[in-house]
């Protein structure tokens, strides 16, 4: 028994030694593809199995087909904060030409992206940025500051700039949402002294949990004037709670979400504003820009980028602008189907 287990251990360790002692591939292999004809673009979402990024992927695939490039799409399927880094490090080894990343965690991933750049892989970011030295361009649909300010300004507009409001977020540790919360609170302090943020609740990215949290908030804070949902499942969740409490219109609902998930509530006047951008266009533009950076046709200092079927996009500094966040409301929501 003893000897067998020792043999097994030795075998196991020698297997590892075998792995470690393997031959070096010539310079990480990124030149495997750079020399080839076909470009490989890797697209990293913040999480998989999420309709927002599934829509981004749709736009991205359209662009990749147009360009005749290979598109890799992979991302975290659970809450492990190390997963994005692991996927990027895997891609570096795979030998992709360019990586387009939506960063769940600004600083957390920057080192992995810088390591990719050191291997000659181009990096652009989209949706949410990393540190500026870890990528060439940020395909900017909205900065964290822009999102925070838009949400806060819209909440102020809906409530007449006074009263209590509460935030529903995905999880307390989601760093991009924490970034938005920071800007929301800064804007609040700066511009709206008569408004008060009474509570912030996590909903574990689940609609039902968001609905329960909202139900509790509505009765625990009877002066609540507005619910701000900053993750997409929380917007319909909060709206359903307001509807069931019979407070439609009296308590405003706004948030970051998809038109398709909120259409009914917006039309019924439960949800006032859903803020988002053209998600499919974001995926399309990201891939176009990533390919242009890799091919060298999009360089620092450019003032404009021709993104084919969605038109010419303005560039400010190192940000390719998709355009301002869009506010969906009763009047315009029927025109969108994602």
């Amino acid at each position: 028994m003893k000897r067998h287990s020792l043999i097994a251990l030795l075998l196991a360790l020698s297997a590892f030694a075998l792995l470690g002692g393997c031959k070096d591939a010539p310079s990480g292999g990124s030149n495997n593809s750079a020399g080839g004809k076909k470009m490989t673009i890797a697209l990293l979402p913040k999480s998989k199995g999420n309709q927002y990024f599934a829509t981004v992927e749709k736009g991205a695939r359209a662009a990749a087909t147009e360009l005749g490039a290979d598109l890799l799409y992979d991302g975290p399927t659970n809450t492990d904060p190390a997963k994005q880094n692991e996927i990027v490090e895997g891609w570096v080894n795979y030998g992709v030409t360019v990586i387009a990343a939506a960063c769940e965690n600004k600083e957390g991933i920057s080192a992995a992206l810088k390591a990719a750049q050191d291997k000659g892989i181009k990096v652009v970011t989209y949706d949410s940025d990393t540190t500026t030295d870890a990528r060439s361009f940020f395909v900017n649909q909205a900065t964290a500051e822009g999102i925070g300010n838009t949400l806060m300004d819209e909440a102020a507009r809906l409530t007449g700039e006074e009263g209590d409001f509460a935030i529903i977020t995905a999880t307390l540790t989601a760093s991009n949402m924490n970034e938005w919360r920071k800007h929301i609170e800064a804007r609040l302090k700066e511009k709206y002294p008569k408004m008060k943020l009474v509570d912030t609740k996590p909903c574990d990215d689940q609609k039902d949990k968001a609905q329960q949290e909202a139900t509790n908030l509505l009765s625990a804070y009877p002066n609540l004037k507005c619910l701000m949902a900053i993750c997409s499942p929380a917007v319909p969740g909060a709206a359903e709670a307001v509807k069931q409490a019979g407070k439609a219109g009296a308590v405003k609902v706004l948030g970051l979400g998809l038109p398709s998930e909120n259409k009914a509530y917006v039309k019924d006047g439960v949800t006032q504003s859903v803020i988002l951008w053209k998600v499919e266009d974001l995926g399309y533009l990201t891939i176009k820009a990533a390919a242009a950076v890799a091919a060298g046709s999009l360089k620092a200092g450019a003032a404009e980028f021709d993104a084919g079927k969605i038109g010419k996009m303005e560039i400010q500094g190192d940000n390719v602008l998709l355009g301002k966040p869009f506010i969906f409301n009763k009047e315009n929501i029927d025109g969108f189907d994602f």
């Binding site: 329960q212 139900t215 509790n216 009765s219 625990a220 409490a245």
Partner: peptide
């Protein structure tokens, strides 16, 4: 401390959930 906890509508919603 918080008698609002026992309001009918939220209480029913909580139990249903």
């Amino acid at each position: 401390i918080a008698p609002a906890f026992f309001e009918l509508q939220p209480l029913l919603s909580r139990l249903t959930a």
